[in-house]
Design a binder for these strands. Structure first.
Lengths: 224, 224
DNA sequence: CGGCCAAGCGTGACAATGTCACCGACGCGC
DNA sequence: GCGCGTCGGTGACATTGTCACGCTTGGCCG
């Protein structure tokens, strides 16, 4: 609980923790700390960082934005993970329209590209870390494709409510925000939540959902 | 047009073409050639190869399979590309349900994992090749998510017909297969094709679609 | 040849989801 | 209190998914 919790941030990451002391010291010199306020765009089509991001504190919501104003959340980057989509898009010059938004205030370690290259070349365990990060995102996206293409909306909503609530019995979210999570329209969420409420699974107030029957939601998330 | 067109396969790939001669010779020793017949499963949940695949000839269709028997095509791996999803899934031990199917007879170069690791460590241009391959797949998947979540089915079908037809005016595909391409049900394809036919965009016969009005399909693929 | 059978396709009825238009309720600043 | 923007509710309709069924085609086999 020090004033500078990232004094040695290399302790916080799988891929850097196991590195030899001298390499870690080199990293500490090369990297910079950067902060983002909640709600800020961390990266986007018009804002591609030239460094690799290590997320020390907070979480980033990665969303895909459609032409007509609809969104869908692809995945979240949590503390201790790195954000590879940005590096992906640094390499592939293709068009894409995903953006990362600070879901909380963030503390980020940025490692310049040259140092990143050097590290991947020299340190096998760091390389594994990077590949594992890519793999996790690929698999996250496979899951999104599967859900969007094949899963019922009530099931997806139930699952997402539980996820967003975490251990709490209540979560702050408007119907619009939930629609953005799942890539659907607000009206659909309103109708489903109305139904959940009638069945006693949740209670609603303006901008807030209370989980009333966690077991029932879990059952719905499993089976549809 | 030799009998052994892959005598030096390192010429066929971005990531290996630029390597020094001695590295390429080492690769030629380490790698093996493998063939798959059209329709064979190249990889899948129960069949994870322990090598990196370089696709020399043919193309692989990567599909995601849902529980209830429905499919969706995620992307295709063409000659000159490598198939990173398999390596992704070697690393991340998570469950996934994508599989690669030989769309034609294949000639594949397989590079054992140890040699792959060594190469990524030592050769920057190979490393770039691998990262670029990951990036391309990530972006392919972003496109799939976008289409499935937000695009109209008639638009997606028109686009896919043009893609599958290539330069030909005709393609061999059943309604079921087209449904698998787009992750929808056969009936939906049947209805849409019936409509396309009534409007004079295509003509149908059993297992075959003829493109009658390419411009109209293109227009539909653009705007919906 | 004739009959059987599986694959391919057509179709109607209904359910789930997306779209559009509109409205009321609530919270906030003036 | 009043105006105003965000949030949520609702009905009508379009699109897409699901289910059940039946017809046709082409191949295979007696």
């Amino acid at each position: 609980m020090t004033r500078t919790p990232h004094a040695d941030w290399t302790d916080s990451f799988q891929g850097t923790r196991a590195l030899p002391r001298e390499v870690r010291d080199r990293l500490l010199k090369a990297a910079h700390t950067r902060r983002f306020r909640k709600g800020t765009e961390v990266f986007g089509p018009h804002n591609i960082p030239d460094s690799l991001f290590f997320l020390l504190q907070g979480s980033i919501r990665v969303v895909q934005t459609a032409g007509n104003g609809r969104d869908i959340v692809l995945y979240r980057v949590d503390a201790g993970e790195s954000c590879v989509l940005t590096t992906a898009c640094m390499l592939a010059e293709e068009a894409y329209n995903a953006e990362g938004i600070a879901e909380t205030d963030l503390t980020v370690i940025t490692l310049p590209r040259a140092d990143f290259d050097r590290l991947t070349a020299e340190e096998p365990c760091f390389r594994d870390f990077v590949f594992a990060a890519y793999s996790r995102r690929l698999i996250d996206l496979l899951r999104v494709v599967n859900d969007v293409a094949f899963a019922r909306m009530d099931m997806r909503l139930a699952e997402r409510l539980l996820l967003l609530a975490g251990r709490d019995d209540s979560l702050a979210a408007t119907h619009s925000q939930l629609a953005s999570e799942l890539g659907t329209a607000r009206e659909v969420i309103s109708r489903l939540l109305h139904d959940f409420q009638k069945r006693g699974f949740v209670a609603q107030s303006r901008g807030r959902i209370d989980i009333a029957d966690r077991a029932a939601l879990r059952a719905m998330a499993q089976a549809g």
